[in-house]
């Protein structure tokens, strides 16, 4: 795993995050593997989304720090941060009558200044983003007229147009049917392989993580239970610890990918 991964750029050092009286993350330390697709897995309320938001600098920390290239995130302006990290929130919202191309164009925000006109380069990057996510044929289509899968791909196109190296996605496959889920996950894997992106995504389906992610980080109650390659993590003992389930691990006869069958 580590042989081809570059130096770690984004890192959480003993971060503690809480809402009101309750701590959601307890002194959690996590180094985001560069040029990899990392899946955050864990039961509801385990702190997956909170970790993702903390990595994006969207949540105040009670202790510890998140660093990007060695610099603590509060040292960077929001704009500078946005040039390097983009985050797709869990249920992003935009007006139904906004066109796909107009949404994607918003991704260029951190690269533009108040009085610079829209450039050919901005347009080229938006076009590339829409092509990669296969929404280029829908550029003029209004968001409200898209299927769930198309809409999610339009949102991913917007985050790509941001030209950040690190993409953080909060449950990008939730509410999609199975074909669209596989579609999105395959897209994420391709972005890592072909575009050299670093991706961290909160996922719910253990088997999707096993199949598509390079790295899995298993959370429970605000702590990391296990972190490593899918083969190391998709183990009955880890799953018992994180999800309190009894699982049998099979292997896909076609490609050997671990498959988790939960029994109880």
């Amino acid at each position: 795993m580590s042989e081809a991964a570059g130096p770690v750029r984004l890192r959480a050092n003993a971060i503690r995050v809480g809402y009101r009286g309750r701590d959601v993350l307890h002194d959690l330390t996590f180094a985001v593997p560069s040029y990899r697709f990392t899946a955050l897995l864990g039961p509801n309320g385990s702190g997956k989304s909170t970790l993702l938001r903390a990595l994006a600098g969207l949540t105040p920390l009670r202790a510890g720090e998140v660093t990007l290239d060695g610099l603590a995130i509060p040292m960077l302006s929001r704009r500078r941060l946005a040039e390097m990290i983009s985050l797709l929130p869990q249920t992003p919202r935009a007006p139904d009558d906004l066109a796909v191309a107009d949404l994607v164009a918003q991704g260029r925000y951190p690269h533009r200044r108040l009085f610079t006109p829209w450039s050919l380069q901005d347009q080229a990057i938006c076009n590339d983003s829409m092509r990669l996510t296969d929404v280029d044929g829908l550029a003029a289509r209004l968001l409200g007229r898209l299927s769930g899968g198309q809409r999610q791909r339009a949102w991913i196109a917007m985050t790509l147009a941001q030209s950040a190296d690190i993409l953080l996605l909060d449950e990008p496959t939730t509410y999609l049917d199975i074909a669209h889920q596989l579609d999105i996950l395959d897209l994420l894997r391709r972005l890592v392989r072909e575009q050299g992106k670093t991706i961290v995504a909160v996922l719910h389906d253990i088997n999707h993580a096993a199949r598509f992610a390079d790295h899995i980080c298993l959370l429970k109650e605000g702590r990391i239970v296990a972190s490593g390659s899918p083969r190391d993590i998709i183990q009955p003992s880890h799953l018992r610890e994180a999800f309190s389930i009894e699982a049998t691990i099979l292997h896909d006869p076609y490609d050997g990918v671990p498959v988790c069958v939960a029994r109880k």
């Binding site: 994006a56 302006s77 929001r78 946005a82 108040l114």
Partner: peptide, 20 residues
Amino acid sequence: GPIMTLSLGSDLSRTLGQNL
């Protein structure tokens, strides 16, 4: 332009690099 980005909500505007 920035007001348009602001209209997309605080989460998006911040991840897009806007000083909210």
